[in-house]
Every structure is written in structure tokens, then in C-alpha cells.
Lab assay of single mutants.
Amino acid sequence: MKVIFLKDVKGKGKKGEIKNVADGYARNFLFKQGLAIEATPANLKELE
């Protein structure tokens, strides 16, 4: 799953980066902790 990092995550990505991560990792950790959001077309447009 592609995500947009909202904060730096050690060993995974830095704020503003778009990366592929495991679905479970994204849903169970990154999204719940507010560290990333899903890289949907709408979210990508907001990032620009």
C-alpha cells in the first residue's frame, strides 16, 4: 500500500515521502498513530 508519511518514522520514511509499505503495517500502526495517510489521488493532490 502506498502511504504519505506525515512524520519521520525511523527506518521507514521521512515526512512528505511517498512509499510502499505492508498493508497491515500501514493500517495497524502508521494510520492509528497518525504517522501516515493513504496515498489516494485526493491526498496526493493536497500534498502538492
Results as ranks from 00 to 15, higher is better:
23 D>M: 12
48 E>A: 14
9 V>R: 01
42 A>M: 10
8 D>L: 03
35 L>F: 10
16 G>S: 03
39 A>S: 04
21 V>E: 03
40 T>N: 08
47 L>R: 09
15 K>R: 12
8 D>A: 06
44 L>R: 07
35 L>Y: 09
27 R>H: 10
14 K>V: 09
28 N>W: 10
6 L>W: 02
21 V>R: 00
28 N>H: 12
47 L>W: 15
7 K>E: 10
16 G>T: 02
34 G>T: 03
47 L>G: 06
20 N>V: 15
19 K>R: 12
23 D>F: 13
18 I>P: 00
22 A>P: 15
40 T>W: 05
28 N>P: 00
46 E>K: 15
3 V>R: 00
48 E>M: 14
28 N>S: 08
14 K>H: 09
40 T>P: 05
38 E>T: 04
25 Y>N: 05
31 F>R: 01
4 I>P: 00
14 K>T: 09
17 E>D: 13
44 L>P: 03
13 G>R: 00
41 P>F: 10
46 E>G: 12
35 L>E: 03
34 G>I: 02
40 T>D: 05
29 F>Y: 15
26 A>W: 10
34 G>H: 09
44 L>S: 05
48 E>N: 12
20 N>K: 10
13 G>I: 05
36 A>P: 00
25 Y>W: 09
3 V>M: 02
10 K>H: 13
43 N>T: 12
38 E>H: 07
31 F>N: 03
2 K>V: 13
20 N>H: 14
48 E>Q: 14
35 L>I: 07
1 M>S: 05
22 A>D: 15
2 K>T: 14
34 G>N: 09
24 G>N: 14
27 R>D: 06
18 I>G: 01
48 E>H: 13
43 N>H: 10
45 K>L: 12
28 N>Y: 12
9 V>Y: 03
37 I>F: 04
45 K>Q: 13
37 I>N: 02
12 K>Y: 15
33 Q>T: 10
17 E>T: 06
38 E>S: 06
18 I>K: 02
27 R>S: 07
17 E>F: 02
14 K>Q: 10
11 G>S: 06
8 D>G: 04
38 E>P: 14
21 V>S: 02
43 N>G: 06
33 Q>I: 07
35 L>M: 08
28 N>L: 09
11 G>W: 06
43 N>F: 09
25 Y>T: 05
6 L>P: 01
47 L>F: 12
43 N>M: 11
47 L>M: 11
44 L>F: 06
6 L>Q: 03
9 V>K: 02
45 K>R: 14
36 A>G: 04
44 L>D: 05
10 K>T: 11
38 E>M: 09
3 V>Q: 00
20 N>F: 15
3 V>S: 00
38 E>L: 10
28 N>T: 08
40 T>F: 05
1 M>D: 04
45 K>F: 12
46 E>P: 06
45 K>A: 13
12 K>F: 15
12 K>E: 11
2 K>S: 12
32 K>G: 09
35 L>A: 04
27 R>F: 11
42 A>G: 10
4 I>Q: 03
41 P>N: 11
39 A>T: 02
21 V>A: 03
27 R>L: 14
39 A>Q: 02
30 L>R: 01
9 V>S: 02
45 K>T: 09
25 Y>D: 06
15 K>L: 09
43 N>V: 11
34 G>A: 07
31 F>P: 04
40 T>Y: 05
5 F>A: 00
30 L>G: 01
8 D>Y: 08
10 K>Y: 13
48 E>V: 12
7 K>H: 12
11 G>Q: 05
29 F>K: 08
34 G>S: 06
37 I>P: 00
25 Y>S: 05
47 L>T: 08
38 E>F: 04
8 D>V: 02
41 P>V: 12
34 G>V: 02
33 Q>E: 13
11 G>I: 02
5 F>N: 00
19 K>Y: 07
3 V>I: 09
47 L>A: 08
27 R>G: 04
35 L>Q: 04
20 N>W: 15
41 P>I: 12
30 L>P: 03
25 Y>V: 08
17 E>I: 03
42 A>F: 07
13 G>M: 03
16 G>W: 09
34 G>P: 00
46 E>D: 11
37 I>E: 04
45 K>D: 08
2 K>I: 13
33 Q>V: 08
14 K>P: 01
4 I>L: 09
17 E>K: 02
2 K>R: 14
3 V>W: 00
3 V>D: 01
14 K>R: 13
1 M>Y: 07
1 M>I: 15
21 V>W: 02
19 K>F: 06
36 A>Y: 01
36 A>H: 00
23 D>T: 14
32 K>T: 13
42 A>W: 05
4 I>S: 01
6 L>A: 02
41 P>E: 14
10 K>R: 14
43 N>I: 12
40 T>H: 05
30 L>Y: 04
21 V>K: 00
21 V>G: 00
39 A>H: 06
35 L>R: 02
45 K>S: 11
11 G>R: 05
4 I>K: 04
29 F>L: 10
16 G>L: 04
36 A>Q: 01
24 G>W: 15
35 L>D: 03
27 R>N: 08
7 K>D: 08
36 A>T: 01
21 V>N: 01
8 D>S: 07
24 G>V: 10
39 A>M: 07
47 L>I: 11
46 E>M: 15
2 K>G: 05
19 K>E: 03
31 F>L: 12
25 Y>F: 10
13 G>D: 02
32 K>M: 12
18 I>H: 02
32 K>F: 08
26 A>F: 13
6 L>R: 03
4 I>T: 01
38 E>W: 06
6 L>M: 07
24 G>S: 14
31 F>K: 04
33 Q>R: 12
22 A>W: 10
16 G>N: 07
32 K>Y: 08
32 K>Q: 12
34 G>M: 08
20 N>Y: 15
46 E>W: 15
18 I>N: 00
13 G>N: 03
26 A>L: 13
7 K>Y: 11
37 I>K: 08
9 V>T: 02
33 Q>N: 15
43 N>Y: 08
2 K>E: 09
40 T>V: 06
42 A>I: 10
1 M>F: 07
1 M>P: 04
21 V>M: 09
10 K>W: 13
28 N>V: 05
1 M>R: 07
44 L>N: 05
17 E>H: 04
14 K>E: 07
34 G>Y: 07
32 K>L: 14
31 F>T: 08
4 I>D: 00
41 P>R: 09
3 V>F: 00
24 G>K: 13
19 K>Q: 08
18 I>T: 06
23 D>Y: 13
9 V>L: 06
5 F>E: 01
24 G>E: 15
5 F>K: 00
31 F>A: 03
31 F>V: 09
29 F>I: 15
41 P>K: 10
29 F>A: 08
14 K>I: 09
47 L>H: 11
1 M>E: 03
33 Q>F: 15
33 Q>K: 13
48 E>L: 14
6 L>V: 08
40 T>E: 05
12 K>D: 07
9 V>W: 05
39 A>N: 02
23 D>S: 14
47 L>P: 06
40 T>M: 05
39 A>Y: 14
7 K>N: 06
12 K>P: 01
12 K>N: 08
5 F>G: 01
18 I>V: 14
24 G>M: 11
13 G>P: 01
42 A>D: 12
47 L>Y: 14
36 A>F: 00
1 M>A: 05
4 I>F: 06
18 I>W: 03
24 G>Q: 10
45 K>N: 11
45 K>Y: 10
41 P>W: 09
39 A>V: 08
27 R>I: 15
19 K>S: 07
37 I>H: 04
10 K>P: 15
11 G>P: 03
24 G>D: 15
12 K>G: 14
9 V>E: 01
11 G>E: 05
24 G>T: 13
4 I>A: 02
15 K>V: 09
43 N>A: 13
19 K>L: 11
3 V>Y: 00
30 L>F: 04
18 I>E: 03
46 E>S: 14
13 G>K: 00
46 E>V: 12
48 E>F: 12
31 F>Q: 03
14 K>G: 06
12 K>L: 15
23 D>Q: 13
21 V>I: 09
11 G>D: 08
1 M>Q: 06
19 K>T: 08
30 L>H: 01
42 A>H: 12
25 Y>A: 06
29 F>H: 13
43 N>E: 06
9 V>F: 04
18 I>D: 01
5 F>L: 08
22 A>Q: 11
45 K>H: 11
32 K>I: 14
22 A>L: 11
30 L>A: 00
30 L>I: 01
31 F>I: 14
22 A>E: 15
9 V>H: 03
43 N>D: 07
44 L>K: 06
4 I>V: 08
22 A>I: 10
33 Q>A: 12
30 L>S: 00
9 V>P: 00
17 E>V: 03
7 K>W: 08
29 F>D: 12
30 L>E: 02
9 V>G: 01
21 V>T: 02
2 K>F: 14
32 K>H: 11
40 T>A: 04
26 A>K: 03
46 E>Q: 14
20 N>R: 14
26 A>V: 09
30 L>T: 00
48 E>Y: 11
38 E>N: 04
31 F>H: 02
22 A>N: 14
32 K>D: 12
3 V>H: 00
46 E>I: 14
16 G>E: 01
16 G>I: 00
17 E>Y: 02
15 K>I: 08
39 A>R: 01
26 A>P: 01
19 K>V: 12
28 N>F: 09
44 L>Q: 06
8 D>I: 02
9 V>N: 01
36 A>K: 00
42 A>E: 14
44 L>H: 05
25 Y>M: 06
45 K>I: 12
44 L>M: 11
37 I>Q: 05
31 F>G: 03
19 K>G: 07
12 K>S: 14
21 V>Y: 04
14 K>S: 09
5 F>D: 00
17 E>Q: 11
13 G>H: 11
45 K>W: 09
27 R>T: 11
10 K>E: 15
19 K>H: 11
44 L>T: 08
6 L>Y: 01
